[in-house]
Amino acid sequence: MLKVKLGGTLVNKAGGRTEFEVEGANIMQMLRNLGRTCPELEPMLKKGVSVAVDGQIYRDAMLQPLGPENEIILLPRMAGG
């Protein structure tokens, strides 16, 4: 089981829930399962999110492996100058 925390707008979309437990061996699986667990999140997930794994921010690396030991936080997608 992965522990996934939500940040930012995602919290509102998930009806105020900030934490989820889902299965998944990598970011892609985790997001897919999260979307199933909480369909309200689906549109945001489709739009794209950033995932912070142990403090490291991933924007696209869907195959990044995840385990129960990781701190996983979903953040809004970021852009820079």
Partner: peptide, 9 residues
Amino acid sequence: VSSYGPTFG
């Protein structure tokens, strides 16, 4: 733990 969520390296 940063104010936006993740823990800093």
